[in-house]
Amino acid sequence: MIRLYTDDLNVGYGDHLIVKDLTVEIPDKKITTIIGSNGCGKSTLLKAITRIISPQSGAVVLDGKHISKENTKKLAKKMAILPQNPESASGLTVGELVSYGRFPYQKGFGRLTKKDFEVIDWALEVTGTIDFKFRSVDALSGGQRQRVWIAMALAQETEMILLDEPTTYLDMAHQLEVLELLQKLNEEQERTIVMVLHDLNQAARFADYIIALKDGEIIKAGACEEVINHHVLKKVFQIDAEIGWDPRTNKPMCITYNLIKGEEKNEQTISDRIPAGIRAYS
């Protein structure tokens, strides 16, 4: 079942088009990661999907409706977004910031209910930030702040969570904690997760579906083994990658790579010209 998709989406800033005629389906109740080099349109696509920016043409459709026409609170009950650079939370405590995730459920004067406080504490617990509840956000480290922002997105209790580079500022252990948390939410609560990641091996390890972008266009979208391979990575990143298999997940992983330079960068090998549907994995 596909609840969320884009149809011939064009997004840009002024005369500069970032995302071009992009049509993509987001698998429901799965984890999707978006990969690509800097400036390829990953964040722009995420912002368009969540209505942070409006497309120049085309549409984003959720549950059969264009999100541009959806009521804001109704949309906020269906999808939460954690942007790459969240707005400043200066002067707020951690608990106050996370409470903003309850906005779609508030009525009247916006007072928090018993259910709201329970959800806030749950979000703080699962992100390991409950001990910071009464501390100022300004006093936290970059990694701690990132986990608090994720807690706010979780407190929104949406069916879909979209995250732009959620592991930014985190060390290796905390990166793994965040990604395992998102995986747990997907597996146990069937939440649809869409996230932009730079680490190819993290993308392969945690994703059910990967979208590889270059210059605002999809080079390949599909299962991990269809995207994390020599041919796709060459086109997307201009690298010559050696691909192996992760012994713990049995998923592909990038073992090492070299930059492709000079004329070789623009060469198209015979194997590159073979249709993707019949190309052998390498």
Rank of each mutant, 00 (worst) to 15 (best):
I81M: 13
M172W: 12
W149K: 05
M195F: 09
W149M: 11
K114T: 14
L181E: 13
E177K: 06
T72W: 07
E263L: 13
F132M: 14
N71F: 04
E187L: 13
V236Q: 06
I260K: 09
P104I: 06
G95R: 01
G108Y: 10
T168S: 15
A153D: 03
T32C: 10
T249N: 10
G262M: 06
Q238G: 14
T167C: 08
A151I: 02
K74R: 12
I193R: 05
L197Y: 10
S57T: 15
T6I: 05
R248V: 10
K77T: 15
K29A: 12
V178R: 07
K251L: 00
T33L: 07
F237V: 08
G12D: 07
M160D: 04
K47L: 12
G91V: 13
D208N: 14
I26N: 03
K30F: 00
T93Q: 15
W245F: 12
L154E: 01
R279F: 03
R111L: 14
G222Q: 04
K265D: 04
N266Q: 10
C224P: 03
C224H: 01
A204W: 00
I52C: 11
D246P: 04
D131P: 04
G12P: 02
K234V: 12
K235Y: 10
Q144H: 00
E157R: 14
R273T: 08
K251M: 08
G222M: 02
S282C: 11
K73W: 07
I26M: 05
A139C: 11
I2L: 05
A223H: 00
T168R: 07
Q268G: 05
P86I: 03
E217M: 05
T72Q: 12
I130K: 14
M152H: 11
G41A: 05
Q238W: 03
D171N: 10
I18L: 02
L9V: 14
T113P: 00
S136E: 10
E188R: 14
V11W: 00
K265I: 04
D138A: 09
I228N: 02
T129N: 08
N201M: 00
E165L: 08
V19W: 02
D164W: 00
K78P: 03
G64N: 02
I67Q: 07
T23E: 05
G222R: 00
K30N: 06
I34P: 01
R248L: 13
L92D: 12
C40A: 14
D15N: 15
V196S: 06
I243R: 08
I161T: 02
I228Y: 02
I218S: 06
G262D: 11
L259W: 11
V119W: 00
K77S: 12
I150D: 01
M160Y: 15
M253D: 04
D15R: 15
K220M: 11
W122V: 04
P247D: 12
E177S: 06
F103C: 07
D171P: 00
E70Q: 15
H230Y: 04
R145N: 04
T256Y: 09
L75W: 11
F206T: 00
I120S: 02
G222T: 00
T44W: 05
E190W: 11
S43F: 01
T168W: 03
A276H: 13
K20Q: 10
L200Y: 09
D246M: 06
R51N: 12
T6K: 08
K261D: 13
A153P: 09
A203G: 09
K42E: 11
R135V: 12
S54N: 13
K115V: 05
R191W: 07
